[in-house]
């Protein structure tokens, strides 16, 4: 399972980097989103994968059963997803306004003239 996830992370990073290097600004924003997903999945995988051990302390006990999943990576990812959601929404709005102003979504066409 870890291997499959590692492969997925690699593919996400590769695709994200490829898109970041494209000239179309929309693709660049997609690339950013993919990089974010790759990082989230990396945290998830690096936090160790454990099946069928919910990290819930049974009534009367003081520690979760062993083995149990580590809830912290999921909390981190949740935070990162929420932040990523906000940031990407902003990036898309910014992109929309920029394309309207510059008349193109080609990053090479977005140089400031003169100034």
């Amino acid at each position: 399972m870890t291997f499959v996830l590692a492969l997925t992370i690699g593919v996400l990073y590769a695709t994200g980097t490829y898109l970041l290097l494209r000239r179309g600004a929309v693709r660049v924003v997609f690339g950013l989103a993919l990089l974010g997903y790759a990082a989230n999945l990396l945290i998830f995988t690096a936090g160790r994968l454990v099946r069928e051990g919910p990290p819930i302390v049974p009534a009367g006990a003081f520690a979760p059963p062993v083995p149990s999943a580590d809830p912290l990576p999921q909390a981190l990812i949740l935070t990162a997803i929420v932040i990523g959601f906000g940031v990407q929404a902003f990036a898309l709005v910014l992109l929309k306004r920029t394309c309207q102003e510059a008349g193109t979504d080609d990053v090479d066409g977005m140089r400031e003239e003169g100034s």
Partner: peptide, 19 residues
């Protein structure tokens, strides 16, 4: 764009450190 790339790298670093 550049700052978001940096954030993604930071996050990956944090993930690996946690791992």
């Amino acid at each position: 764009v550049l700052n978001l790339v940096s954030s993604a790298l930071f996050l990956a670093g944090a993930g690996l450190l946690y791992g």
